[in-house]
Computed example of a mutant assay.
Amino acid sequence: MNATNHGTCLLALLLSVACAPLPIVKRAPAPPPEAKGEAIAAAPKERATPIANKTINIAAACKRTEEDGFREDALMDVKANEVRALKWKLWVSRRGSCEFNLAEFRQVRATPHIELQAIDGSQCKLLVWQDPRRVTLAHNRCEKHCTPGIYEQAWPVLFDPKSGACAEVR
């Protein structure tokens, strides 16, 4: 084989590789540009399970301090989904705290979860629900009840439905 044939073969080989179809790789669509001051929420992978319509009866007291400095002191008494007593204070390390007292709320829902609305006209809500492992007391839109700058780190309190003590987080 002479040099011309070599060059022709090499050119034919390069053209056959260059013209071969490329594998199609699907790319995820680019996320929309972030709005100023707003975080983009990740799309849920699975649809959340609805809260079971369950009658909650609990006399709960949870007082503990975590290794990271997060601390909570919560008392709650619920009979047949009616909140009779609630006093909850949580601390985010030494940076600040949030405080909730039943006198500042009125109950607006009993099922499928308990909902308490702040009487000050704010959008603050306290939510209580039960699953097989715990009773959860959570807050929503309650920045006014917290030291500025800590609300995003203020987690719900979890009670053991059998004992009323703090539930295991793990």
Rank of each mutant, 00 (worst) to 15 (best):
P21N: 07
R47F: 04
H6A: 13
A41D: 00
L116F: 02
K89R: 15
D160H: 06
P161H: 04
H6W: 07
W155G: 11
P33H: 02
G96D: 02
L13I: 10
N81Q: 10
D68S: 04
E72T: 06
G121A: 01
A167E: 10
P23I: 03
E168L: 11
L86K: 06
L11C: 14
V169F: 11
A28M: 09
C19Q: 11
L10E: 13
T65D: 13
V92Q: 12
L116Y: 07
L86M: 10
A138Q: 10
N5K: 14
W129P: 05
E38R: 10
A52S: 12
T55F: 00
N2G: 12
I119M: 06
T8S: 14
E82A: 15
T136W: 01
V157G: 06
S97F: 07
E82Q: 15
A80K: 15
A20K: 01
C166P: 03
L13C: 13
V135Y: 01
P32E: 02
D120C: 02
A167N: 13
Q107A: 08
T4W: 10
Q130D: 04
A12Y: 05
D131R: 12
V108L: 07
N140F: 04
H139K: 11
V25Y: 12
L22T: 14
E67G: 03
E34Q: 11
P112W: 03
A28N: 00
R141C: 00
K144Q: 13
A165S: 15
A28R: 03
E34G: 06
E72S: 09
E66D: 10
W155M: 14
E143I: 09
G7M: 15
A48W: 04
R170L: 09
L11K: 15
T4A: 14
W155P: 14
M76Y: 04
Q153G: 11
V92M: 09
R106E: 11
I150Q: 09
F100W: 07
R27C: 01
A85M: 09
E152Q: 12
P29M: 00
V25Q: 03
A60N: 09
Y151K: 05
C146L: 04
T65P: 00
R170I: 04
P161D: 02
A60M: 06
C166W: 05
